[in-house]
């Protein structure tokens, strides 16, 4: 394949009910950096129905060109119409890079596209950069999260990557940025539309698995009892976090086993881990020390948890947590 025909960094702009998803804005920020090092353009692919008024916002966040496919068939996401639309755009315009948010939509669409376009897709990248020979370097945690792997897709185009929400940083909005908006008409093959959406339900989700939580508020002996965990629950609510536990509190019957972090429990790797009243036995550390950022509160200033924590506070969990919850709740209003 002639790689020189492929250029520019394309971003799939995920929208739901016409609302641009945060991850798309974050990807525009990353795409801007990549395009600048390639001296190429950032192209936003805005797919949906009656969404063309969103194009300017994408320019403000870093796009040079917005390709707007405003089609009734794209009013809500299903795999086939979206895969057809992007396939057509890729065939016509030949992007070098395509970035997609690793949401339930992006993780449905991305692999379908990679197979249709016969190119590589690297899932859930935590780092994206351009190499000296202008290849996209896609870094993701490999098995167990202890090893990082940088993946390249040298002989195929476009180079595709999904990125989880919250991993990349959005650029500040610049209302004065200039860019162009182009409308794209998609020639659909409707005979392939086989999945019908009956209804879309929004609900308070059940608590998610602690291994999938981005923020964990974890409690140990220092939290003491069910009442203490209720206090942690309130803090968790203000941070969209999950509550987890040390082994001691599971053995004491205060918390269920599926919430246990550590060697005999689960290994977690959230962006933020609160160790509340947890001393930090090695068995516990084994299950959480890969967390991005660890905040520990403990009365005992010699607690081993302070050797692993990024921020340690010697103090009483029962005094600090309610204060913190109150302040965070006030900020959310």
């Amino acid at each position: 394949m002639d790689k020189s025909q492929y250029k520019d960094v394309y971003v799939f702009i995920e929208q739901r009910e016409g609302v641009i998803q945060k991850v798309a804005i974050e990807l525009l920020g990353k795409a801007r950096e990549l395009a600048d090092s390639l001296n190429e353009k950032v192209v936003a692919m805005l797919l949906g129905y009656e969404i063309s008024d969103k194009a300017q916002e994408l320019i403000a966040y870093g796009a040079d060109v917005v390709l707007c496919a405003d089609e009734r068939e794209l009013v809500q996401y299903t795999t086939e119409p979206y895969a057809q639309a992007i396939t057509q755009i890729v065939h016509e315009r030949k992007p070098s890079v395509v970035l997609i948010g690793a949401t339930t939509i992006g993780r449905d669409l991305g692999p379908r596209l990679s197979a249709r376009l016969e190119t590589g897709l690297t899932a859930d990248c935590t780092g994206l950069a351009i190499s000296d020979d202008r290849e996209l370097l896609m870094t993701r945690p490999a098995f167990g999260g202890n090893l990082m792997a940088t993946i390249i897709c040298k002989e195929h185009r476009p180079q595709m990557s999904t990125v989880r929400p919250g991993v990349m940083r959005a650029k500040p909005k610049d209302e004065n940025r200039q860019g162009t908006v182009e409308n794209v008409h998609i020639a659909f093959d409707k005979s392939k539309f086989k999945v019908k959406v009956l209804e879309t339900i929004k609900e308070q989700k059940n608590r998610i698995d602690i291994t999938e939580a981005k923020v964990l508020v974890s409690g140990g002996r220092g939290v003491g009892n069910a009442e203490g965990f209720e206090m942690l629950g309130k803090l968790a609510e203000t941070l969209n976090a999950e509550v987890s536990s040390s082994r001691a509190m599971v053995d004491a019957g205060v918390m269920p086993h599926d919430r246990q972090v550590g060697q005999t429990g689960k290994t977690v790797r959230p962006d933020l881990y609160f160790a509340m009243g947890i001393s930090g036995a090695i068995q516990h550390l084994a299950g959480m020390e890969e967390s991005e950022f660890i905040i520990a509160i403990n009365k005992d200033k010699y607690a081993p948890i302070f050797n692993t924590a990024d921020l340690g506070i010697v103090g009483d969990v029962k005094k600090i947590v309610p204060l913190l919850t109150e302040k965070l709740a006030a900020m959310r209003k």
Binding site: T119, L137, I152, G312, I313
Partner: peptide, 19 residues
């Protein structure tokens, strides 16, 4: 189409500050 270009371990992190 994809290849591992390199792999590396995350550096062990140093202890943070305690207040």
């Amino acid at each position: 189409p994809t290849r591992v270009w390199k792999s590396f371990t995350k550096g062990a992190k140093a202890a943070g500050k305690v207040f």
